[in-house]
Design a binder for these strands. Sequence first.
DNA 1: TTATCTGCAAACATTTTGCAGCGAG
DNA 2: CTCGCTGCAAAATGTTTGCAGATAA
Lengths: 130, 130
Amino acid sequence: MQRMTKQRQAVFTELARLPDFRSAQQIFDALKSQGEKVGLATVYRNLQTLSEDERVDVLRSHDGEFLYRLCETPHHHHHLVCRTCGTAEEIEQEAIETWVAEVSASHGFTEVEHSMELFGLCANCAKIKQ
Amino acid sequence: MQRMTKQRQAVFTELARLPDFRSAQQIFDALKSQGEKVGLATVYRNLQTLSEDERVDVLRSHDGEFLYRLCETPHHHHHLVCRTCGTAEEIEQEAIETWVAEVSASHGFTEVEHSMELFGLCANCAKIKQ
DNA sequence: TTATCTGCAAACATTTTGCAGCGAG
DNA sequence: CTCGCTGCAAAATGTTTGCAGATAA
């Protein structure tokens, strides 16, 4: 099935090291500067595998990059991401889910999936900024 | 200031022709097959200008393309987009807006902007499909 | 006239893929 | 030993940019 190679291990460890969203590039750079020998393509491939297995959350940043981070909760959820430092908090809202279901039904849509991400400025960065 | 060229006119007309979300490529192809002589870069440049002026809605499709369409309502709103045919319906919901405001505040975040798009299968496409 | 716009092609950034060799199980 | 994984480099995608010539006002 799946093999645990040094590279996969390294990617996983790096993801575990900081609980924020990172791009594949950032992870690649971090590993490189730690002396790990990992190719960029390998980072992408592992992130893809991990996201297929639903071990990481994937979201798309404002300028179109994929960002990854370890899932904390296994079920569906959304994030409140700091634009500046990348800190992310999971927000739980079944209210949204039911609302989505209602809206979809009332418009005759099926198989609806929703993406919702909140990007803002966290309390800490707001303080630093001003 | 801004000049109304044949090309800008063409892009605008094409956007007006169908009220669905289109990619720059699709608009480019449509214009080309109508015999219009417009470059792809020009389409992009005009779409960018239009979105800066808030004359078009921009959203990102599931696989990372920008999609454009004329704004119908000037204020903030979301969309329910058909994955298959691209039909989009605007959905208004201040419920969401207030919810976002609450969540943001409770996490100490400021300047929060949210993106939320629903992608599904519209009634018509669902019928065709089965 | 003249600043803006256009077309083209080349540049970009991010992600994916092909392939020969490596290595975990 | 095998089949999945890796590195590299090349390809693919979608978008942007530089520049010389065209054009709206």
